[in-house]
Amino acid sequence: MQWETTTILLEQLRDAESLAWQRFAGRFRPPMIRFAQRCGLTEEQAEDAVQDTLMQFVEAYRDGQYDRSRGRLGSWLFTLMYNSVRSHRRDGARAPKQAPKAIDRTTFFSAIPDTDDAKQVWEQDWEQHAIQTCMQQLRSEVSPSHYRAFELMTFRDVPAIEVARQLGLSRDAVYQARYRVLKRVEELRLAYNGVEELTT
């Protein structure tokens, strides 16, 4: 199964009729939800905030406002998401129509991390989800025995010779499998972040 790179997804997103929107949202919603909840939003608020952010992004993107040369997709979404989180926190506590204000550290907004902290949290979640998504894709691409070879070596520190015995492979094949898996995850992660095209 060919990996749908974020660049391809973004290209398809230009077409308002495309189903790419669903796939785009499916790919990036999980870390955004997690981030929103870590910033103190309830599950429902987080869902709303993420939905708003994704909508905002798509509108801006279709308007041609997203300039990839100015930064990664993740950073762009962070800015939108962070604003959305603050806005939802505010709306959750005050009258819904009140005009947005800057963060007031002395009131209930204190639970929200400042931009730097938030950014750090965001990047951690983003990166974790990116790797996990890539790993999932990877498992559909490599044979189960090769994946297992990689898994046993990387996560369990099982020596190559032992992995080879367990899986009925040669030691060389085990090392080769680990190498290819890692190179491929590296590639996939770049593609996830919309940084680079892939050849598949």
Binding site: W3, G26, R139, E141, P144
Partner: peptide, 8 residues
């Protein structure tokens, strides 16, 4: 909707 899942 979620590319890459369950493909195996």
């Amino acid at each position: 909707t979620v590319a890459g899942e369950f493909m195996g």
